[in-house]
Design a protein around this nucleic acid. Structure first.
Lengths: 172, 172
DNA sequence: TATTGTTATACTCTATAACTATA
DNA sequence: TATAGTTATAGAGTATAACAATA
């Protein structure tokens, strides 16, 4: 268990890390926004899968995943084969064109990171990767959170919706 | 200098860490979206400042910052005092109500992180914080990136806008 | 009846551009 | 002329809800 100040600092860092993500997103081709890049990357890394599985891996709603998939499919970067065992779903797979895009993304990402993180050792980048993976794992699937994580009612002491004492009615 | 695969992995981790951020955002009061929380947090941490300085700290465009600030100001969480030395700008400062909201945010964040990261030691959370801070620092202000970071032309070998070979014209 | 996807709608965040006021 | 902010507009990402097809 860490100190309260460490948790607050982590919250700040996570909030601020968005700038890095945006920086990385800025180098993507116009036709391939971050959502599309994620779809391609996960298909390469985890192999063919159905939409619901992809939504799990991306930790976003299946409706959102559906749109990302439609975007890359329209461009011919993935294909959707019928699922032999379930006519409701299709199996997503990378196409050659998709692999080519992925290769391009890899080149750009590597270029940028090699420049910006030039003074990081391989081991240091590896440590960061390990900790980020663990962080995601610790959070699990936070999409299902309602008011409290793991422990139902954990947030009760904080006062559910902001109490009147903490947030005054809109002034002026 | 790290290996290419480490860079690719980092890109994946950063892409996926959004899920953690969303989980943390979900516990915020309805009236206080992430952008507002960031404004309050930075004012507490760095003290009173003008809008342009806040935009720098948030690493977002000043126009976006202006809207976030307007949101929290409308709720009385911050005040805008005239800048004695420059009538064009105002000095932003937390109000007591803003501090109360900040206290509430701290309670909720700490609750959630204490539960989800219960098996992390204080030192481990500290290490993650340190590395995230360094990562942000290494990236610098990536808002000004155009096609390449630090080195102008670094991305040239990747082929500027996606080449025809990598991205075929929209098929079918 | 339950599950897999798709689509419509709405909200947050961000960037660009045009504009006002002041330096 | 240059800078500090504000506002309008547009694009990306996500969530909820309603709906279609199949299990």
């Amino acid at each position: 268990m860490a100190a309260k100040s460490q948790y607050e600092e982590l919250a700040r860092q996570l909030s601020a890390i968005g700038a890095v993500k945006r920086g990385l997103a800025r180098i993507l081709p116009v036709e391939c926004p971050p959502g599309s890049a994620a779809v391609l990357t996960l298909l390469e890394r985890h192999g063919n899968m159905r939409l619901s599985r992809l939504a799990e891996l991306m930790a976003i709603d299946i409706s959102v995943t559906s749109r990302h998939v439609a975007h890359v499919a329209e461009r011919g970067w993935i294909g959707r084969s019928p699922d032999p065992g379930d006519k409701r779903s299709r199996i997503l797979h990378l196409t050659d064109a998709g692999s080519a895009v992925l290769h391009e993304l890899s080149l750009r990402t590597t270029d940028v990171l090699a420049h910006t993180l030039g003074d990081w050792s391989d081991d240091e980048v590896g440590q960061l990767n390990t900790m980020l993976a663990r962080l995601r794992d610790s959070f699990g699937d936070c999409r299902s959170w309602t008011s409290a994580p793991h422990d139902c009612g954990a947030l009760a002491p904080s006062g559910g919706p902001l109490t009147t004492s903490a947030i005054p009615a809109t002034p002026a």
